[in-house]
């Protein structure tokens, strides 16, 4: 018998969650106009700085990790026969 999926993992809920997430994202950027944002350096006072910087930094880190992974990853049992 197939279990009905938990309400949280249903396709419709996930769609709703994405919409809610996108709204919140937009709201945080929009909230800049209300809050008094004065950067420390100038560059961080540009509109949506934290948003694009956070996003860009994460994409860069994921790609870097992926690249390093190509060189440094080994199968899980790698050390099993090698440890002294």
């Amino acid at each position: 018998m197939k279990r009905t999926p938990h309400w949280l993992v249903r396709r419709s809920t996930i769609r709703l969650l994405w919409i809610a997430f996108a709204t919140v994202l937009a709201a945080t950027v929009a909230a800049e106009t209300i809050g008094d944002l004065h950067g420390h350096f100038g560059v961080d006072a540009s509109p949506g700085f934290s948003a694009w910087f956070g996003f860009g930094a994460c994409v860069a880190m994921i790609l870097l990790a992926k690249l390093l992974g190509l060189i440094l990853k080994r199968p899980d049992g790698y050390y099993d026969n090698r440890d002294p």
Partner: peptide, 19 residues
């Protein structure tokens, strides 16, 4: 402060978007 909360939320939520 409003500025700190907003920038921190932006930073983190957009990191979540990247994930």
């Amino acid at each position: 402060t409003a500025a700190h909360v907003i920038t921190q939320l932006q930073l983190l939520l957009f990191a979540g978007l990247a994930f």
